[in-house]
Amino acid sequence: MITSPANQHVKRIRSLASDRHERRRERMLVLEGVRLVADALESGATLTLTLYAPDQLQLTPAGAALLQKLRYLPASYEATPQVVAAASDTVHPQGVVALASWPHVAPGKPGLLLVIDAVQDPGNLGTLLRSAEAVGVAQVLCSVGTVDLYAPKVVRSAMGAHFRLAMEQDLSWDAIGERLASVDHVYAADPEARMPYYAADWRQPSALLVGNEAHGLSDAARRLATKQIAIPMRGGTESLNVAVAASVILFEALRQRTLGRS
């Protein structure tokens, strides 16, 4: 059992959690918490390093079930709760932290794309990925300037979407434009637009563009849009959080694609 917070495995996990360049160089992401690690295993991910506290995991049924799997994995080490906490990024660790290689998920059938323009908040990006996976988005494309897809807070917020959703980051607008060339409709979410989001025809190959929290869509993103859409609101709020707004629109797209436009 690992008992020292100065252990080399703890240092490696902490380094990858804090250093974007190192995550990119090694193409690794940090997984933390019972649900996220269990979800990764169920999705077929290979954990390259795992630290877990048996006594802590045994406190919940989900933790106990995960413990039975972790005992037989390679590069999986028992550790004290203090050691796992030292390797963790959260305030209240759940007794397990792991490393996994970046998943490679092939894009789905052409249908619906989500393009993210310089979203900065990790929680917002994670929620966007989670909603995109839930509605069956074929691929998520992130422009240069978007927060790191594999940052620990993004991974936690996405709740396993990384292992089931095709995604790319740091794309130039020229590259994004090439990806959208075969898309029938490119809708840009803009609170000032007159067209309501439910009037859009999401049944055809489509893309949704969402912009930065403070500045909205960039000029480069607007040039790629064929139409601009908004969410009508009756209250005094001027606009919704980008993750909330995109989720509302994406689920309307799913409704139309499932039930038809009405």
Rank of each mutant, 00 (worst) to 15 (best):
G126E: 03
M167W: 08
R130Q: 08
M167Q: 15
P103E: 10
L73V: 05
E78T: 13
P122Q: 10
G95K: 00
W102Q: 03
A166M: 04
A100P: 10
G160F: 03
A64F: 01
G126L: 06
H92M: 02
H104V: 13
P152N: 05
L67Y: 00
Y150I: 00
D89V: 12
T80N: 09
R156K: 13
D148W: 05
Q94D: 03
A134G: 15
V105T: 13
L128T: 10
V84E: 00
P74E: 02
A106R: 15
I116P: 01
V144A: 13
P107T: 07
V135N: 11
M167Y: 00
V115P: 13
Q139T: 04
S76D: 10
V105P: 08
G145L: 06
S157K: 05
A161G: 07
G111T: 04
A98W: 12
L149S: 09
P122D: 11
E168H: 13
L113Y: 14
A151S: 11
N124F: 12
V155C: 05
Q169A: 07
R156A: 12
R164V: 02
P152K: 06
G160D: 08
D117M: 06
Q139A: 14
Y72R: 13
T127P: 07
S88T: 08
T80H: 09
L125P: 00
P110G: 08
L128C: 12
K69W: 06
P152V: 04
A134K: 08
G126I: 08
P81T: 09
Y72Q: 13
E133N: 13
A161P: 00
V115M: 02
A65Q: 14
L114P: 09
A100V: 06
I116K: 01
P74F: 01
T146Q: 06
V115F: 12
L112F: 12
A62K: 14
H162N: 03
W102C: 02
K69S: 13
L128E: 10
V155Y: 03
G108Q: 11
